[in-house]
């Protein structure tokens, strides 16, 4: 299952923000293609979620172009983008707490006009055996790590070409982060493009082939994951307001 070469997500000179007249990010260039994992690292408030929400269609870019497979998707709604194959795993997981695990997946499939066939359910839960055993539990009763798995599974059910993950490691135990790294790696290897917003360096090193450093309202640097630990990159990441706790 190799998606067409042209299912790449491109941002060209994009400016965006939460309010129509205040730019949080400016001049963002980004390219993600199927089978490739791109990381974005940035401190709290750097604008990672802002970028993720812009790609998902919840925020409108103030300038620049957002294209998918060469077509301009800027005017499209979140629903239309999900239909095209761009899925967002939002920050803080955002599972439907009062619905069961299976129902969460049913809703995800419904969002792109599909049914959750037994085959689809098996295919997705292959990555996450724990979801299979807790299929009938309420999502709110899952642990943080399990909820994160569910949020990713929800995206996968939509058979996306690109998944944007907003801080999936947030609040997870180290063991759960290891599992997460493995799962994200195998999703990438199955030919899905990944845009991974993170503060956790380890996860980026494990999964991504290149990492953008988001700071001061723009992309400051693009580095290889293994260079993330180099002092000058660290310094750039920690920046002026740097604090050693950030990493």
């Amino acid at each position: 299952m190799t998606p067409p070469r042209d299912a790449a997500l491109d941002l060209t000179s994009v400016a965006t923000g939460y309010l129509s007249d205040v730019a949080v990010l400016e001049d963002i260039d980004l390219h993600v293609e199927p089978g490739q994992a791109v990381g974005v690292i940035g401190r709290n408030g750097a604008g990672k979620s802002c970028l993720a929400l812009t790609i998902a269609g919840q925020l409108r870019p103030q300038a620049g172009r957002v294209t998918f497979g060469g077509a301009d998707i800027a005017p499209l709604s979140s629903r239309a983008r999900a239909g095209l194959g761009i899925a967002l795993v939002p920050e803080g997981r955002q599972v439907f707490g009062q619905l069961t695990v299976r129902e969460n997946l049913v809703v995800a499939a419904y969002g792109v006009g599909q049914r959750l066939t037994p085959a689809a359910f098996d295919a997705v839960t292959e990555h996450f055996p724990v979801l299979r055993t807790k299929e009938a539990d309420l999502a709110a009763s899952l642990s943080g790590g399990e909820q994160q798995m569910l949020a990713i599974a929800r995206a996968l059910v939509q058979s996306p070409r690109i998944i944007v993950c907003d801080e999936p490691s947030l609040g997870l135990a180290p063991v759960a982060i290891d599992v997460l790294a493995r799962v994200l790696g195998s999703i990438r290897d199955s030919g899905v493009g990944l845009l991974l917003m993170e503060q956790n360096r380890g996860l980026l090193e494990d999964v991504c082939s290149s990492v953008k450093l988001l700071d001061g309202g723009g992309i400051k640097l693009t580095v290889e994951p293994r260079d993330l630990s180099r002092p000058e990159v660290m310094a750039a990441y920690l920046g002026h307001a740097g604090s050693a706790h950030a990493l």
């Binding site: 998902a56 629903r79 967002l88 939002p90 439907f96 809703v107 995800a108 419904y110 969002g111 049914r115």
Partner: peptide
Amino acid sequence: SRIGIAMRAVNDNRFAGQILGVP
């Protein structure tokens, strides 16, 4: 039914519903 489940989902977490493309 899918619609019924999606209705409950929208009430549970509207933002998540929108992200997933639920109308």
